[in-house]
């Protein structure tokens, strides 16, 4: 692994191949396309659906604490289990799951560097068997909202200029040319970005094979975009999963302490009546 601030939160595909079935380790696949798991997955991996198991299915929110505890227990995960998350789209929703695990205080969560596509590209073993782990006992802590931003905090920060805002969407979404990623439903009323935000698309953090770029390269990307790290950083995207990925990079790979994920993101801000919006680059 490259010289990250927290190397312990990343494992390679080779590590998973060697240790994925070890006692005390649980591998979990979380995809954007929830049908991918059924195609074939890392042998022994449990599959979580982001749109039903990692959110509140009634109101808009992250998974409730009691539902999180049940998901962990049903997945055979105890408080001391090493959980290795991976998924498609360079770990978009694996990072979303990682962030929620940290909100609820799970100690040892990791991402498989390169995600599902790297595992496939390397021709590693796949399974279509759905494991039935023995239920475990799980007690969540928190929620730790020090890693999460809500609308009032973001609004106040915009007014005061006291934070560095990082918009991790594509340039076309940032400028307001499009309202959602091409090919996906439009879910906001207005296009553009939060005034003062810097556009640093999440994908800049990834190499061609899906793995994270080196710490030096990542540092240069943020530095060149004007992010100094001297102020608190709020990352946002459209619904909070891409910004979980960038939050992971900033907090764990670069070691910046005061980074939050604004999971309301553009589907909240871009639908507000009277909220300030900037258009263009």
């Amino acid at each position: 692994m490259a010289n990250y601030a927290h190397n312990e939160v990343l494992v390679s595909t080779e590590w998973v191949s060697q240790h994925g079935a070890d006692a005390g380790v649980r591998v979990v696949e979380v995809d954007v396309n929830t049908a991918s798991y059924a195609e074939g997955h890392v042998p022994g991996a449990v599959g979580w659906a982001w749109d039903s198991q990692l959110c509140d299915t009634v109101r808009r929110d992250i998974v409730p604490k009691d539902a999180f505890e049940k998901l962990m227990a049903d997945s055979g995960i105890s408080n001391d289990t090493t959980v290795v998350l991976y998924g498609d789209n360079n770990n978009w929703f694996a990072a979303w799951a990682f962030w929620q695990m940290k909100v609820y205080g799970h100690a040892d969560a990791r991402l498989m560097d390169g995600g599902r596509v790297k595992w496939l590209a390397e021709g590693r073993e796949l399974s279509t068997d759905t494991p039935s782990p023995a239920p475990a006992s799980y007690k969540a802590s928190g929620p730790d909202n020090s890693i999460r931003s809500f609308l009032p905090q973001v609004s106040a920060a915009v007014e005061s200029g006291s934070v560095e805002l990082v918009d991790v969407r594509s340039p076309e979404e940032f400028t307001g040319e499009i309202l959602s990623p091409p090919g996906l439903p439009e879910t906001c009323q207005r296009g553009g970005h939060i005034p003062g935000a810097s556009n640093i698309p999440w994908v800049k953090a990834c190499a061609a094979d899906g793995t994270f770029k080196s710490a030096d390269a990542l540092r240069a990307i943020y530095r060149d975009a004007g992010i100094s790290g001297t102020k608190p950083i709020i990352a946002y995207c459209r619904i909070g999963e891409r910004s979980s990925h960038s939050w992971f990079v900033l907090k764990y790979l670069l070691g910046l302490d005061n980074v939050t994920n604004y999971d309301g993101s553009w589907t909240e801000w871009g639908n507000l009546v009277g909220a300030p919006v900037s258009r263009g680059a």
């Binding site: 396309n33 789209n89 594509s170 990623p181 090919g183 994908v203």
Partner: peptide
């Protein structure tokens, strides 16, 4: 699978 390169979202499978 077809994705839109940037941002990388899956469009069709």
């Amino acid at each position: 699978k077809a994705d839109n390169v940037s941002p990388g979202a899956t469009i069709a499978t």
